[in-house]
């Protein structure tokens, strides 16, 4: 995890839940591309169109993002839809761990008012700095705990576990 440069798509919504991210009716299949097609459709049927229009790879929303079910299909659908990072003031805890485990970057950032759809951001994860290139402002963010950085640097929990098994 180094630096990410990308554009923002923002939903000013609190408690954006996993049923909105991927409705349960699509959970009969695990194919990421199929899930991506239906990602966020009950919230905004134009999600995929808007994402393309703004060339967005960074999703911004309000607090308690990803609340609800444990479905890992939620971060999988977002990742397969081309989202590289989700920014919110807080995350529901199962979404938080699922995202880290599958290698979708997430960032806890309180000042989402400073970010708007179409803004270009430069995020430096190592130093914990978010730069809004559109408004030309810089923000400090909380760095991720070392333990989680290890999982992310192994590119997800799967590789972290595989390294352990291979060492046995």
């Amino acid at each position: 995890m180094k630096t990410l440069i990308g554009k923002v798509l923002k939903y000013n919504i609190k408690n954006l839940n996993t049923d909105l991210i991927i409705p349960a009716r699509y959970l009969t299949k695990s194919d990421p591309n199929y899930l991506a097609e239906h990602c966020m459709e009950d919230l905004d049927s134009e999600f995929n169109k808007k994402k393309e229009k703004y060339n967005a790879t960074i999703l911004v929303a309000d607090s308690n993002f990803g609340c609800g079910s444990s479905r890992e299909q939620a971060p999988i659908a977002l990742k397969a839809a081309g989202i590289k990072c989700v920014i919110a003031p807080s995350f529901a805890r199962i979404f938080f761990r699922n995202a880290i485990n599958i290698g979708l970057t997430i960032l806890e950032f309180k000042e989402i008012n400073a970010l708007n759809t179409g803004d270009a951001l430069e995020i430096n994860f190592k130093d914990g700095i978010v730069k809004n290139l559109t408004s030309n402002r810089k923000y400090k963010v909380k760095k991720m705990p070392l333990f989680l950085q290890e999982i992310i640097s192994a590119e997800g929990l799967l590789n972290f576990a595989r390294n352990k098994i291979l060492k046995k």
Partner: peptide, 18 residues
Amino acid sequence: TGVGSTDLGVSMALGQCW
């Protein structure tokens, strides 16, 4: 507590969970 599928896959292998 509830976890995700990757957590569960890892737990089935290691018997551990972060």
